[in-house]
Amino acid sequence: MGFSINAGLLDAMVLSIVQQNDTYGYEITQYLRKAVDISESTLYPVLRRLQKGELLETYDKEYMGRNRRYYRLTERGAASLEEYREEWRSHKKKVDSILLNEGVENNEQA
């Protein structure tokens, strides 16, 4: 991957994964790995941050005789995710206009 992923984008992707269904740390990493090179140790601070900001909440569920920590999107998290998505759409459009020469006539040169 030649492009770096910043913290905001990582937060947004984690929120989106959790929105699909409640899930646990390891699965989130596996999911993210489809798009970015990330390790469990990178994910931990992200999850902590989202939890502290009350965008995610956790609950424990038994799995094979042990507890597994599941993450669930809060209302605040869902709202934040929508903001992220909107921001991403406009960001993507701007980047595409330059990188892929798309919609040159709409290029605002911001």
Binding site: G25, R66, R68
Partner: peptide, 27 residues
């Protein structure tokens, strides 16, 4: 405890007998 339970879970979810591998991957 929060951090350790997270990392312990990572080891457990990565599967049995893959501890060395997981540790190397984590750093």
């Amino acid at each position: 405890n929060d951090a350790l339970s997270y990392y312990e879970e990572v080891f457990l979810d990565a599967g049995f007998g893959k501890e060395e591998e997981t540790a190397a991957e984590l750093g």
